[in-house]
Design a protein around this nucleic acid. Sequence first.
DNA 1: CTAGAAGCTAGAGCGCTCTCTAGGTCAACC
DNA 2: GGTTGACCTAGAGAGCGCTCTAGCTTCTAG
Lengths: 141, 141
Amino acid sequence: MGGLSIGQVAERTGLSVHALRFYEREGLLADPVRRESNGRRVYTEEDVDWLNMCIKFRSSGMPLDTIRKYTDLVRQGAGNEADRLALLKSHQDHVRAQIEELNECLNVITWKVDIYQEHVNAGTADCLWVTPSTQTASEAS
Amino acid sequence: MGGLSIGQVAERTGLSVHALRFYEREGLLADPVRRESNGRRVYTEEDVDWLNMCIKFRSSGMPLDTIRKYTDLVRQGAGNEADRLALLKSHQDHVRAQIEELNECLNVITWKVDIYQEHVNAGTADCLWVTPSTQTASEAS
DNA sequence: CTAGAAGCTAGAGCGCTCTCTAGGTCAACC
DNA sequence: GGTTGACCTAGAGAGCGCTCTAGCTTCTAG
């Protein structure tokens, strides 16, 4: 339990060592990672937890900038919970909107896949479809 | 119905005129847009339909490169429907995976939002949470 | 006839998020 | 004692997807 090297953290989180150093430089870690006497980073389990949260933020489209803002709030300590909450809620809305948009896209794509599937199955393939609604000719051959 | 100018298409699709010219240069349009005698682009409704489809592809994370590949297949004409289908299916999988990932992220974020909400409501705010599972201390003040 | 809006091409520039390089330290192993 | 491998910093570079500029033409309205 004596702390983790950057390599170990990279392995656990899936981030590259480059990315880990980059994130630190960018101020995305609550506290700047502790160092051994020789200058090497020593990560704690809490650091890894925090990084995993950052990964969730990132993979749901939160820009580094916003993560930094959140990190700053946390670093400032108690008293700004309402701000943190607002930031999180705003991102929550963002994520919900993304999911909705992706679902719409998925519908369109699935519609196209189904049509292609039918025609490929049937051996007939030279048809015309672009949108579910208009059925106009743009994919004609 | 005599065709649309680039400005009109920009307005309808939400793409900038810059982006429209860029997409054309990048080979994202089934056929290079027709021109008036003076060299100006004239878009058809089918072009707009196609662009709207590209927008769906883009906003579900398909890289321009892949859209170009798809466009190439369509341009080549009948006979490669299985390839188009494969491309679409692969993107469909991608989109589904994205949605799943976003849902996971949303769960984490919602969990955090709920806790902050509680504490903000209660006026008590100095607590320690990072992950739903570990409850370790990283957001302590 | 003139001003202003809209269009054109070619190509530079930008914002974001890493990723990689150069040049070096340090510890461990054969 | 030399080599290997993980680590360090500072900063350059890369990939993607636009966005903008320069310099020019062309249409439209007053």
